[in-house]
Design a protein around this nucleic acid. Structure first.
Length: 902
RNA sequence: GGGCGCAUAGUUUAGUGGUAAAACGCUGCAUUCACAUUGCAGAGUCCGCAGGUUCGAUCCCUGCUGCGCCCACCA
């Protein structure tokens, strides 16, 4: 009975970790359904799904280790444990990553079109999205991989749709035009929680507005954004402000615009700030929007979605960026002697949390989730203790925000994500639930040609597709696969008919050519590039002709003529194929005219909205006409949902809600959620009310808010700053167990960890110590009966050393268990380390070199391995395998050592 | 503007109403012994600053300073 022939003098994690992980996976012990022993109670953790764009950082490693410690202990304690892994599609973040990749290739998502872009993101996800899950495995995470979920899985999409429609039917999901946080780079709105703030050195400008009824007199307002004055609707003062009492109700002249605006009062105005008088710009400031609404002020949108000044801003600034406009306005005011003071004024600017671009508040039509009732139940769940935070002070962060939560802007104007599961009337934009369709109709623009690439006007020139164009056609075909298309009609020009045939081949449908859908006749422009035409006509002239409804390019068709011709063809098809699903393959110009007609768009808007190559547009026909305008064309709404709306469903959508309830019944609610503090409101709060709304119960009872790992000098770890530490590098250098040890060692309950790598090294040494202690015990223990772990071995004849070490072991078992149960992981580990090294190795083993008691040594060793297993699973499992215990199972499913009741 | 957390040896951190610890690092010694990824010994902290409570405070209270974080319609 001697195991030492296998035990090398040093522990080498590289020889152990992958092999042991494989054994665990093959054992089925990660899956609660295939665990040994009869297990009544369940213990569930749904991992906070990392973004598919992410790779493991120290925060993930800490969090995964915490969860693994809990799961492994509970598994050993006989619970039916499920740790459910998965990833988040991370809407804006992922879209941005893929957009960056496209930029490197010299293209944009708009060039690709929506379907092709989404296909690209899926490709990206398939390639990189699971990296982080593989990294979890390297750390030793005992997750049930058979239940891995992704927030864009088909079943998960179902859940999101169900949840949205539930709120919609309840009247809590509504559409409204509001001033929202708009990111001019991402081209989407953002919720209030998706902002970051940065202090910026700004200037506070004091501007005089002349009072109309009192020549020579002014009211002075202070602002950091003088450019927005072009959209001012009023000047506001506090109603209690004596200084302005007699001016309230009067009109002042808005400089530059020379527009009279009223002086009004509002309680929200701070008398102390600036001059106590504020310019009110309802379009570009949330507070001003409120004041504007209360006072029925007109809204002048002077900044557009790209951050450029609109025509309403007037000739001084139209078309220029807001920052440039600021300079122009300031110098104009100076020239007019109306700028009386400039003082430096540091203030916070809000930034997009995904790209860091300054937010431009914009009035915009968006979807909102009503929060009054949901906020109340979420608050209640925490206040009544159904959800408990550890440490409890984090509860305040939650309740503080929940208590004053505003309606959630939930729609995003990006492409990657869950689409809002509603349709709209193509003509009047009225939203409705998906109607029963009499027929589905699609318009597809042909794929790319070489002339497209050269930006050369093709008109009737018969140019074939290039490779990219054929690829686009195939992508489009794939996207149209399940739409049930019956008929394909195509323009008879090669680039369209070729596109149509590729799609037709995929769908098994013949193509009918129809000359109504030919591209616009370009006359003399045909064959010329945009660049050449600008030289001929000047840029301005070119644009004017290009977007003129009645003017034809010399010798060609006007847009009016194109519209007439193509709509004739379209209506003929409608007549002919009443109840058929039809796909029309055509061209940029013709499709724009069909869309203009069906969507009832203004020509100027329609003509500028060119579809990209291969893009398909759905214009289907509803059985039931629009209640609002009586028209029949409908199309799906294009906006997608805030990523966090789908994340909010995580604890139950991952368990099969709403359709598959087997796991849901068994594992919901989950036991504990462990996460970082920065997503308490963004995620935790939303899971709580979603759970209450859809499952009628909180999604977890305990919330662990773990520490944030900072650099040694307390700075944020950031990949871009190069201050980040890659856990994979640590695992490579020290081993996974040492890495876990080093992380947990520092998790002492503070809200920050100032990262110190030396503790990982200490972990490596400790692993070696454990290994060698085992080596020593196994080398010496000659008596097979020493390996019988059944029963109590304490008896009176034992030496004092034996008794002492056994007593200390009992103490350690008690304390380690209690610390883990209280989520004090660092304390638990310190306790174990102290006992094992100082008491067992340095004292007991050293003394046992004189007088041995193998049974005691084996007992302390085996129990220690069990206690250590949640912290250092690989090492302990490997050592366990080397101990010749009769009838043993793997350590991962061995019984957790409980303190003896004495 | 409001709130929260932290401040103890060179470093990362425990800890207690009666003038302090652990790990790593450092110094010295040991070593054919399970482990040099070791053992033993040792040096090193006026417990951020100023007040207060107390017989007595690093620990409780107040203020300040520094670092970090969160929230706010921060014109």
């Amino acid at each position: 009975m001697n195991g030492t022939e296998d035990l090398e003098p040093q522990y080498d994690p590289k020889k152990v970790e992958d092999r042991i992980y494989k054994l665990w996976e093959e054992s089925g012990f990660f899956n609660p359904d295939t665990l040994p022993r009869k297990r009544e109670k369940t213990y569930t953790i749904a991992v906070p799904p990392p973004n598919v764009t992410g790779s493991l950082h120290m925060g993930h490693a800490l969090n995964a280790t915490i969860q693994d410690i809990l799961i492994r202990k509970k598994r050993m304690e006989g619970y039916k444990t499920l740790w459910l892994p998965g990833t988040d599609h991370a809407g804006i973040a992922t879209q941005n990553v893929v957009e960056k990749e496209l930029k490197k290739q010299g293209t944009t998502r708009y060039d690709l079109g929506r379907q092709a872009f989404i296909a690209r993101v899926w490709e990206w996800k398939e390639k990189y999205g699971d990296i982080i899950l593989e990294q979890f495995k390297k750390l030793g995470s005992s997750m049930d991989w058979s239940r891995t979920r992704f927030t864009m899985d088909p079943e998960y999409q179902k859940a999101v749709e169900e949840a949205f429609l539930h709120y919609y039917r309840k009247g809590w999901m509504y559409r409204a035009e509001r001033v929202v946080n708009w990111c001019v780079r991402c081209q989407t709105s953002l919720s209030d929680l998706e902002l970051e703030y940065k202090e910026e050195k700004a200037m506070l400008y004091y501007i005089q507005y002349p009072i109309l009824s009192r020549p020579g007199e002014h009211i002075t307002v202070a602002t950091v954004r003088p450019e927005t004055m072009l959209g001012d609707s009023a000047v506001a003062v506090n109603p209690k402000d004596e200084r302005y009492r007699d001016i309230v109700g009067a009109e002042v002249l808005l400089p530059i615009q020379d527009r009279p605006i009223p002086v009004i009062t509002d309680e929200a105005i701070d008398k102390e700030f600036g001059t106590g008088a504020v310019k009110v710009t309802p379009a570009h400031d949330p507070l001003d929007a409120d004041i504007g609404a209360k006072n029925n002020l007109p809204v002048y949108k002077v900044i557009d979605e790209r951050g450029k000044m609109t025509a309403l801003a007037g000739p001084l600034c139209e078309g220029v960026k807001a920052s440039e406009c600021r300079e122009r306005v300031v110098s104009e005011l100076k020239a007019k002697n109306l700028l009386v003071k400039e003082e430096s004024y540091p203030h916070n600017v809000s930034l997009c949390y995904r790209c860091g671009t300054a937010i431009e508040p914009q009035p915009s039509m968006q979807w909102f989730l009503k929060m009054s009732e949901l906020g109340r139940v979420a608050l209640d769940a925490v206040n009544t203790g159904r959800v408990t935070f550890y440490p409890d002070r984090w509860k305040d962060v939650y309740t503080h925000w929940m208590g004053s939560v505003r309606d959630w802007n939930i729609s995003r104007q990006i492409w990657w994500g869950h689409r809002i599961p509603l349709w709209r009337c193509s003509t009047c934009d009225e939203a409705r639930e998906k109607p029963e369709l009499a027929a589905r109709w699609f318009l597809v623009r042909h794929g790319e040609t070489e002339w497209n690439k050269e930006m050369r006007y093709m008109g009737r020139e018969d140019i074939p597709l290039n490779d990219a164009g054929r690829e686009q056609a195939r992508t489009t075909a794939a996207a149209l696969k399940d739409t049930g298309i019956d008929i394909i009609v195509s323009s008879d020009l090669a680039r369209a008919s070729e596109t149509a045939r590729i799609i037709g081949r995929e769908l098994g449908i013949d193509v009918i050519e129809n000359e109504h859908f030919r591209e616009r006749h370009m006359g003399e422009w045909q064959g010329k590039t945009t660049h050449e035409l600008k030289e001929i006509h000047t840029e301005e002239g070119f644009t004017k002709i290009r977007f003129h409804y009645d003017e034809a390019y010399h010798g060609g068709e006007s847009w009016r003529e194109v519209e007439g011709r193509v709509m004739k063809g379209f209506q003929d098809l409608r007549q002919k194929y009443q109840n058929k699903n039809v796909l029309i393959v055509s061209h940029g110009g013709t499709i724009r005219m069909i869309v203009k007609n069906i969507r009832n768009l203004h020509f100027d808007v329609a003509v500028r909205n060119e579809p990209s190559n291969g893009q398909s547009i759905e214009l289907s026909i509803a059985r039931e006409q629009c209640k609002n305008c009586g028209n029949e064309y409908v199309e799906p709404i294009e906006d997608v949902l805030d990523t966090w709306f789908s994340s909010a469903l995580w604890p139950f959508a991952t368990l099969g809600w709403p359709e598959h309830i087997r796991d849901l019944k068994e594992f919901y609610p989950t036991s504990v959620l462990s996460t970082a503090r920065d997503i308490i409101n963004l995620w935790v709060a939303r899971m709580v009310y979603s759970g209450l709304e859809f499952m009628d119960g909180v999604p977890f009872s305990d919330v662990i808010i773990h520490a944030t790992i900072l650099t040694k000098d307390g700075k944020r770890m950031s990949k871009s700053l190069g201050t980040g530490i890659d856990p994979m590098t640590l695992i490579e250098k020290y081993g996974a167990d040492a890495t876990r040890f080093g992380i947990v060692w520092q998790a002492m309950g503070n809200q920050d960890i100032h990262w110190a790598e030396e503790h990982v090294n200490a972990g490596k040494k400790f692993a070696n110590k454990v290994w060698n202690a085992a080596r020593f015990v196994l080398m010496n223990a000659a008596d097979p009966s020493a390996f019988d772990l059944s029963g109590d071995i304490l008896h009176d004849a034992m030496s004092d050393d034996d008794k002492k070490v056994l007593a200390l072991l009992e103490e350690t078992k008690k304390n380690v268990g209690a610390h883990i149960d209280a989520y004090e992981f660092g304390h638990a580990l310190h306790e174990l380390y102290e006992f094992f090294w100082r008491e067992f190795c340095d004292v007991y083993i050293e003394r046992s070199k004189k007088a041995r008691n193998d049974a005691v040594a084996v007992r302390v060793l085996t129990e220690s391995l069990k206690l250590l297993h949640p912290f250092m699973p690989f090492l302990t499992e490997e050592v366990w395998a080397r101990i010749p215990l009769p009838g043993k199972s793997m350590l991962i499913v061995s019984e957790w050592p409980l303190p003896h009741a004495r």
